[in-house]
Structure formats: C-alpha cells, structure tokens
Design a protein around this nucleic acid. Sequence first.
DNA 1: ACGTCAGTTGCAAAGATTCTCAACTGGTAA
DNA 2: TTACCAGTTGAGAATCTTTGCAACTGACGT
Lengths: 156, 156
Amino acid sequence: MQLTSIWRIVGVMKHALNQKPDYEKELRKAGVRITRPRRIIIDILTSTEDHPDAMKIFHRAIEIDDSISLSTVYRTMNLLEEMGAIHRHAFNGGPSRFEQAHGEHHDHLIDIDTGAVVEFKSDKIEKLQEEIAKSLGYDIVHHRLELYGRKTRHSS
Amino acid sequence: MQLTSIWRIVGVMKHALNQKPDYEKELRKAGVRITRPRRIIIDILTSTEDHPDAMKIFHRAIEIDDSISLSTVYRTMNLLEEMGAIHRHAFNGGPSRFEQAHGEHHDHLIDIDTGAVVEFKSDKIEKLQEEIAKSLGYDIVHHRLELYGRKTRHSS
DNA sequence: ACGTCAGTTGCAAAGATTCTCAACTGGTAA
DNA sequence: TTACCAGTTGAGAATCTTTGCAACTGACGT
C-alpha cells in the first residue's frame, strides 16, 4: 500500500500527543498580557476534551476564581481566536463553542444532525489555497474551512 | 493559452451578469414556502449591492410592509444561508452582514486590513472536499471556506 | 373555489455577545 | 522594588439573535 492520503484525522491523536503548547510564552511574545483570568481560561481550554461554549467556560472558571466575569470570557475567546490559538464553531443558531487549536492547524467536518466535529487536514487543499491567494495578490494569514455534512446513508 | 485555471474570480462579474437568479422557484423546489415576508426580504437582497445586516434589512422591509417582524428577518436569513442562497459575514464582533450568493457557490478571501471581500471558486478544492468527506463517511450538504489574508508586500 | 394542515409569522421574552467606563494590574524602566 | 501607564477587568447596560406560542396562511387535494 503506497498511497499518499490526501487527509488524515487529527482529532484522534488529540489524547496521544498530549503536548500542551506553551500558550503563555506564545501570547507574551505577541505582546499580550498574561493576566490571572486569562491564565485560568487558557488552562480550562487546554485541559478539556470537549467543545464548551462561553457560559460553560465561565462556570468552570468561577470555580477557580469567582471574580471572573462573563465579559472577560468572551473577550478572551475573541483574543485567542484572533491569535489562532482556538477555533470557534457555530451550529444552527446555538451559542458558539470553542476548542483549542492544538498546535497544528486542521479543518472541520461538522455533522449537521448531531453537531459532532471531525477534524482533518489536507495538505493538498492548503497548497491550493496558497496558490489562489497568491494569484489574487494576497498572503494568507489564516483560513477557515468547514464542511457541513450528514452521514452517508447506505442504500438500505 | 490552454491553461485550466484552478480558480476564477466571481465577484467582479457581479454587475456584469445582472441575472437575478429565480430564488422563488429554487426555494419552492426545495420545499420552502414562498410567503409575503420572504418574497420581500429576498427582493431586498437581490436588489442591493451592499452587505446589510439584519436590522438594515428589517428597516428596508417594513417600508414595504410594516407588519414584518425582526424575528422573521433573522429566521429568513438563517433559512437562506442554509439553502446556500446567501452568505453571512461576521467582522470583528459586529452584527452579521449578508449578501446574496448570486446563484453559483463561491468562497471568500477576506482582506484582514480593509475587510474587502474577493469571491472565488475552485473546482479542484471542491472536489477534494468531496473526497475527504466521503472517506469520513459523510455527504457534504454545504461548506464554508474563508481565506483571511493581507495584500502581498512587494519587496520595496 | 374551498377546506385542510403543516409550515410561518408576530410578539414578547429569553438567551447570547458586545460595549462603556471607572477601577485595577502586568510589564517595563529607573 | 517602586512608580508608572497602557492594557485589562468587572459590572451592568446595550445590542444582537433565537425561541415559545397562539394566530395565520401558503400549497395541495377535492
């Protein structure tokens, strides 16, 4: 078998390579202050396996420090998203949910029936994106690719 | 010249081919009812060049029929988005803004400095997406690809 | 044309997210 | 270590978006 897979599932590796990236250093380098609320929120994000929404993160946060406000959670999520440290998902009207972007970039396939998220990565697609952007006179800073799908129904 | 371009700009054609697609027929075919509010909202979207937010659409709508409610605007935007008839853009926190998806599907390149949006389409990427989804056991219902970039700085 | 009924609507209320602003606090330089 | 100040925070108001529900209305069959 000598096939170059055009994608590979990244999600399943999540647990395996449990290498929490050092966000603090990264952020500080980018000129962002590491405050107590931010440290707590980042910790919550790096130590969870699910995709919590702002309210859930808020509740987990006030268990550690009950002075943290919901505004700060929202502000921090926006900050981290811009920094590329987390990804935001918005399913059918519901509140946005977040997940850390464990180091490597990846794209998402969202099950429109269950909201389940499969992470994958395709170097071919990334390369095509680069080409397109270049032809248009742009450098890509970051991108978002989300496939919304439904489990294939095997003709029953 | 015999190159198969992997993409083409769709946005610049916007004005040229001023062919309002027949959304009513499309929607009806998809089992969606064409009600008075929906007809009015669709008319507003197909006859504007800008990217209005829900409130702006609402105001334009009640000038035609002052019984239309804001909820209906939002509901209709969600409906049309799911149908792929419009695109939603959310710039830095502000309210979502919409634009019609002049018939053909296309992706977006967003200038992170100016907010300008270039529309493009790549059949190759679409094809790769199909393949990936299939391998994962899914059928794609719709997708979103957004490249965020910055104008290439020519070494000056 | 007419009745039927699931899909839609308007309204009000709830939920989600951003904003304003005075008080506070990391990081830096002396 | 201390003082300083731009960046950050908490609290609550403001804004944006979704929802629940009773009334309404397209689309289809007769």
